[in-house]
Amino acid sequence: MNDEPEWLVRARAVQALAQSGLAFTRDPYDRERYEALTAIAAQMMAGPSGADPDALRTIFEAERGYATPKLDVRGAVFDAEGRLLMVRELADEGRWTLPGGWADVNQTASECAVREVLEESGYRVRAAKLALVHDRARQGHHPAGPFSICKLFFLCTLLSPEPERLDGNIETADARFFAEAEIPDDLSTGRVLPHQIARLFAHRAEPGLPTEFD
């Protein structure tokens, strides 16, 4: 169940309708109407959140084409002792999360997850199983964001016991393996939640579990 505030859900829906309308309309008057809806969506979202409506409108106007959820990929890497790899995010006050990020074009979702693990931790891995397909809003991630996001969590096999030296990594400050009882409390909850980590440990313990979704 989506526990986000109704104003955010409605503002996001208006923005998506405006974006999709702009992608397909050929009528100049309809274009003006959809542009006005974009501005209204920014105002709807800015009011309760305290954000700058002009800044939100600029973000919305940069989105092109039919509006669809954005795709976030995460790699769940376990070592031989059953500990989970986590990284400390520089962008979120040094909080801990699973390595991952936005999916890139010209790569499959699993390739993106493997790349993100290498870039953020130095470990080379192989994606072995898609464990979780979660809608960010339905799972209760905070803080809420302006766009719909689909999150894919892949179980990954560790290919080497030692990380490679990373030059120019500007995303993470640390990478460590944690036992389930040692998972840090200061999680980056916009990226991963405790119940998702628990399910990933369950999938590691029982590889035959089906992919969980929604």
Rank of each mutant, 00 (worst) to 15 (best):
M86T: 02
D27Y: 11
A113P: 07
I59Q: 14
Q15S: 14
P207F: 05
L158I: 00
E61A: 15
I197W: 08
S20M: 04
P28R: 10
Q196C: 06
V133I: 01
K129M: 03
E120T: 05
P163T: 00
P53V: 07
A205R: 15
E89Y: 13
F147D: 04
A11V: 07
F24M: 13
S121L: 02
D214P: 06
F178P: 06
Q139T: 08
D92Q: 08
G65I: 08
F213M: 09
T172N: 04
T68V: 14
Q43S: 13
A11I: 06
E206K: 14
E35I: 05
E81F: 04
H195E: 14
E119D: 11
Q15D: 08
R115P: 01
D92L: 07
W96R: 10
D27G: 10
T157F: 02
S148A: 15
C112E: 01
V9I: 14
S110F: 07
E63P: 03
T172Y: 02
F60N: 11
E81P: 04
T25P: 09
P163H: 02
A109R: 11
A42D: 12
A144H: 10
P194K: 10
S160I: 01
D52L: 09
D30T: 11
D92G: 01
H142P: 05
R57Y: 04
R124T: 04
E89S: 15
H195L: 11
H141M: 00
D92I: 04
A131N: 01
T211P: 07
R64N: 12
A173M: 13
G101S: 03
K129S: 07
A55H: 11
G168Y: 02
L152M: 05
